[in-house]
Design a protein around this nucleic acid. Structure first.
Length: 508
DNA sequence: TTCCGACAGTGGGGTCGCAAT
DNA sequence: ATTGCGACCCCACTATCGGAA
């Protein structure tokens, strides 16, 4: 199959907003793809590369060679070149990658270049990822979407599942099993504004667990062999030796556990997320990193214990298995209750200990791998500040033509003026985007560099955020975490905005 | 007919490791 | 030694479609 076939299908998918139409386009192409190309086609059309990452990003894709006129590149040719790109490393590799990229793109037509460039950057933006591709695989292979979904949750990689469905139908899909050593897409949580709201969503009695601000991990053990994976299924076994030792010391030798690693201070309070994140990412001197920043692990779910798969069991039963297999000090603290007041008190206590919040879990819910089901609901406290808009950036994609991303500043009571604390594009409705674009253009002031419009600091906006973190990027030495717009405050003047001192007090 | 669950898009700050400067 | 880049850790929120109610 030719790359141009995929480029055309992708364009058709992007042009139709209806999901059923997208599914039709994708299924039609999958019906024509050969068995040796199925994985590649499914990967490309769901916005990913079979190689996962190839060391090429936005910068490397600037100034591509002139496109050619005849579309002759095949999927297999492109895939081979991308694999060669991925294997480049060491001195001179940047030039080698550039040469390979030039060779690759010089063999492509304009539409093919555009498609592949967006794909490699991870910005296909055709309105179809795994969710739509699952339906397309089901349609093209004549299998139920639920079977495709289930195989995906066990295998973790849709191209392999899709290729199996296309060649072997529902029988092939049913042959996918939970395999120790191969990660499963982790179950995700929805969020709610309060414990009471979360309890209502979950429906009555629920388990309420500490939510730790660390890194999600999935630990596998088969005999003496332990592997550890992240949320995106990357293998980080070598970076977390204390976790490997902890799992290796458990009595059960056949395990898949779900949990969180976190760096704690000697007094048991959590380090800032930046510390945990940096420790987990350290690869060059793991022993040294371990000495200075030891990790603790807390498990909250068990997908397999002693050879038995637990995915379909209710949370209650899985947790009972977890408690049997793992000592209490390695289990995330939890409270089972149907009393909102009791839950609220538990939440307050978790915050008092310096942790992030709680996750409210339905006792009946099975492990919905890879999905953001209603079985788990997280609750975190929310801070708000009234800040001043200092500038705005032009949006992209569906926000093209609108000023989207806001630069936020707090008042500086000493030096006068405003100190930038970060940016946000979240929380804006289309109506607000239209309003603020018009408004900012009347306030435009100072240099415009093509994508940023500096404005007179006159608009006050109420911003919600999760916390303040240390920053080397911003002049005040701090930045907001997960900032989002609540509403504009036309009733407030910039002189009434919150000050940097208020923000600094939250840094602790 | 209305409601709501699932999805995709639109980007945020921080850190590490590597190659180039 | 510093800088730029890619990759990945954490993530919130709105718009939309289409099946459920």
């Amino acid at each position: 199959m030719l790359l141009i076939d995929l480029a055309r299908t992708s364009a058709a998918v992007a042009a139709d907003s209806a999901r059923l139409a997208k599914v039709r386009h994708l299924a039609e192409l999958l019906g024509r793809v050969g068995p040796d190309e199925a994985e590649i086609a499914i990967a490309y059309l769901s916005g990913e590369l079979p190689q996962r990452q190839i060391g090429v990003g936005l910068a490397a894709l600037r100034d591509l060679p002139e496109p050619r006129l005849a579309a002759t590149a095949t999927l297999l040719q492109v895939d081979t070149l991308l694999t060669r790109l991925k294997t480049q490393s060491g001195p001179g590799s940047q030039a080698a990658r550039k040469a390979l990229l030039t060779e690759l793109f010089a063999a492509l037509t304009g539409p093919e270049q555009a498609f592949l460039s967006r794909l490699v950057r991870g910005e296909l933006r055709q309105g179809a990822l795994d969710g739509v591709m699952i339906e397309a695989v089901a349609k093209a292979s004549g299998t139920p979407a639920a079977e495709v979904r289930r195989a995906l949750m066990l295998r973790g990689w849709l191209p392999a599942v899709g290729a199996a469905a296309l060649s072997g139908g529902v029988e092939a899909l049913r042959s996918f099993r939970l395999e120790v050593g191969r990660p499963v897409s982790p179950m995700l949580a929805q969020s709610a504004p309060s414990v009471a709201a979360a309890l209502e969503r979950v429906g009555g009695r629920a388990a309420i667990e500490w939510k730790l601000d660390g890194v999600r991990i999935q630990a596998h053990r088969s005999g003496d062999a332990v592997s550890v994976f992240t949320r995106t299924l990357d293998d980080i076994t070598a970076q977390v030796p204390e976790l490997v030792e902890a799992v290796g010391a458990l009595p059960a030798a056949d395990l898949v556990l779900d949990g969180e690693v976190i760096a704690l201070r000697p007094d048991g309070r959590p380090e800032p997320f930046q510390v945990t994140s940096g420790r987990v990412a350290s690869r060059t001197d793991v022993a040294g990193a371990r000495r200075s920043t030891p990790l603790s692990v807390f498990f909250f779910d068990a997908l397999r214990v002693g050879g038995a798969d637990l995915l379909d069991l209710p949370d209650e039963a899985r947790h009972a298995e977890l408690a049997r297999a793992v000592p209490a000090e390695l289990i995330t603290p939890r409270l089972v209750t149907d009393d909102a007041a009791e839950g609220e008190a538990f939440f307050k206590e978790v915050l008092r200990r310096g942790h992030e919040g709680v996750v409210v879990k339905s006792p009946q819910s099975p492990y919905a791998a890879g999905r953001r089901g209603a079985g788990w609901v997280k609750v975190k406290p929310r801070h708000t500040l009234d800040l001043v808009v200092l500038a705005a950036e032009w949006g992209s994609g569906r926000r093209e033509g609108w000023l989207s991303n806001l630069h936020l500043g707090a008042r500086d009571p000493v030096g006068g003026g405003f100190v930038m604390l970060g940016k946000t594009f979240k929380g804006l409705t289309d109506e607000l985007l239209a309003w603020q674009t018009e408004r900012f253009l009347t306030l435009a002031d100072g240099p415009a560099d093509g994508w940023t419009v500096t404005v007179r600091p006159e608009l006050v906006v109420e911003i919600a955020f999760d916390g303040v973190q240390r920053s080397s990027r911003y002049p005040g030495g701090m930045a907001l975490r997960f900032a989002r717009v609540i509403r504009y405050r036309p009733d407030k003047t910039p002189e009434q905005a919150d000050t940097v001192d208020t923000v600094r007090a939250l840094l602790l």
